[in-house]
């Protein structure tokens, strides 16, 4: 898979390139500022992007804005956004830019190399991967309709879905059987009135409802 990488810190850029290439990705362009990133994202060969939020010239949120802009031009273009900080506001903005195919992680998560690579792959295949820190912030927030209908366990499962975990991973985390997880997930879909659709799509929608997008 051909990726666009954007990261202004040379050391991290080299590290990420090495890491992703080690997991079978091809780095098409490695941009170090907003202008180079814009040019790289215009390349029709690119299949997904891994972006840093804060970059030159203004060191604010140009990576995020570039991600949203490219998804407006190319709907469904997979983007994994990395940042030193996570804000649930930014997560909502990213998710609102199209259904699925977005990731938003703390840079620290790169340390778990295999899981990070799996996350990028999942985003590239249309999934949603949110940082546990965003998930816990949202979980601490007020309960409102229709999420109020969920049980505590179902909310927990939904949170893990938002982190981009598979049924098997959720089962392992909660030490329950795969069947029990599937039952919870079905119950979540029903309670959130999600239309019958393929399972991946419904997962994304459940996460969107949860983040009030």
């Amino acid at each position: 898979m051909r990726l666009v990488l954007a990261e202004d810190n040379a050391l991290l850029r080299a590290g990420l390139t090495q890491l992703l290439e080690g997991h079978g990705f091809t780095i098409l362009h490695a941009a170090s500022d907003a202008a180079a990133l814009e040019a790289a994202l215009a390349d029709p060969e690119a299949e997904a992007a891994v972006l840093d939020v804060r970059m030159p010239p203004t060191f604010t949120d140009e990576g995020l804005r570039a991600a949203i802009a490219v998804r407006q031009r190319r709907p469904g273009f997979p983007v994994m956004v990395l940042s030193q900080y996570v804000e649930s506001l930014y997560a909502r903005e990213l998710l609102a830019s199209g259904e699925g195919a977005v990731g938003y992680l703390l840079k620290d998560r790169v340390a778990d190399v295999a899981e990070f690579a799996a996350g990028v792959r999942q985003v590239a295949s249309g999934g949603t991967v949110l940082d546990p820190e965003v998930v816990s912030t949202v979980l601490a927030r007020r309960r409102e309709e229709p999420l109020e209908r969920l049980t505590a366990r179902e909310r927990e499962v939904l949170g893990l879905m938002a982190e981009g975990r598979s049924n098997a991973a959720i089962a392992e985390r909660l030490t329950v059987t795969d069947k029990a997880v599937a039952k919870h997930i079905n119950s979540i879909f029903t309670k959130l009135d999600l239309p019958v659709d393929d399972d991946d799509h419904r997962r994304v929608r459940a996460v969107l409802t949860w983040l009030r997008v």
């Binding site: 804060r54 604010t60 506001l89 909502r92 949202v138 601490a140 007020r142």
Partner: peptide
């Protein structure tokens, strides 16, 4: 990134 308005909105969204 967003100034005081954006930051207060972000803060507000995370409150219970």
């Amino acid at each position: 990134d967003r100034g005081v308005v954006g930051a207060v909105e972000a803060l507000a969204a995370d409150l219970p």
